[in-house]
Design a protein around this nucleic acid. Structure first.
Lengths: 174, 174
DNA sequence: TGCTGCATGTAAACAGTTACATGATTAG
DNA sequence: CTAATCATGTAACTGTTTACATGCAGCA
């Protein structure tokens, strides 16, 4: 299996429906709906350049008011490449949760720290849950045809709730 | 935030209780209990060399029968470094699920491929569930004092079941 | 004799992160 | 006027992966 820059496919996928700027792509990836895909800001622009060079996208400079933007549009070649990727079997998730790793190494001698990690996590989980709910509302209003996105969010929400319950249970035991 | 080689801490953590060889560490990381931490084989040995150089571990050559092994033992310095890491706030999970990314880009025009991805995932989830169950049994028998590991596995199991239900629901809708 | 599992590694290539850099526009 | 947000990037570094490499032990 050769290495593939996966960032390419997120971008191509997002461009399927609309032409976008690098900044807009960054913002979309940051939204809660995209909870399963993390990307650092710095990777977007260079990847767009690569896609341009490979003929998967074209770009044009547009003006919105006085603001200058570089807008990218997917080409036929880009669409083909996206479909090729989509049909191929997805890579296994290479998960690395430092949080769970710490839990794995928890013992009675590290009880205080464990408690701290659990409560911190609980808080972030609650925040995440709220973010998911808000995002779901937004989709229901603005893009109600995206039913599958709602299913994905519903799934994320359920996992989140499960984790909250588990965390609360563990905290009670301490 | 400076980058930290996290592999170091998995190894140190595993060495807290027993002296181990590189091979043994590799095998432990592959077990289902460690589902939240992925590591490529090739990273173990070089990291052990680094830990040795930094004085976090010592090594000795042992013989089991005629077989030669290099066994690593954590030092006091190594234990301190582990505790420092343990107490520090865990990094946020940088998740990248190519599977969910494909789901995100699913539309009616890609229904067949979607179905294929869902059924494949369903199968791996079932396999995973079985692996978790077997592993839990093993821990109950061999290391019954590791109650927290069982809690972790219980959690993983619940998430797994949740995903299976979700996948089945989505498949029904197609 | 040949296969499987044990056991330990290296080198090159690539992906991803951090930190740095710049400047324009808009809302308060 | 000034802070926040929009907008686009680059360079250096480090982490991670792939592919390659070797050889012994035990068993059928």
């Amino acid at each position: 299996m050769t290495k593939e820059n996966k960032t390419k496919y997120v971008i191509l996928g997002l461009l399927l429906e609309n032409s976008l700027t690098g900044y807009e792509i960054r913002e979309i990836i940051k939204e809660p709906t995209m909870y399963f895909w993390h990307e650092t800001d710095a990777s977007i622009y260079p990847t767009l350049k690569v896609l341009l060079r490979e003929g998967y996208v074209t770009s044009e400079t547009i003006f919105v008011g006085k603001r200058k933007k570089e807008q990218f549009t997917i080409t036929e070649r880009g669409r083909k490449e996206f479909e090729r990727w989509y049909a191929s079997p997805p890579d296994i998730d290479r998960r690395r949760s430092e949080f769970l790793l710490k839990l794995y190494f928890s013992t009675s001698t590290r009880k205080n720290e464990l408690k701290h990690h659990l409560t911190t996590r609980l808080r972030t989980c609650h925040d995440l849950l709220e973010a998911f709910k808000l995002d779901a509302e937004k989709i229901r209003k603005e893009e109600p045809h995206k039913t599958f996105w709602l299913e994905l969010l519903q799934n994320a929400l359920a996992h989140c709730e499960l984790e909250i319950n588990w965390l609360e249970k563990q905290l009670k035991h301490l």
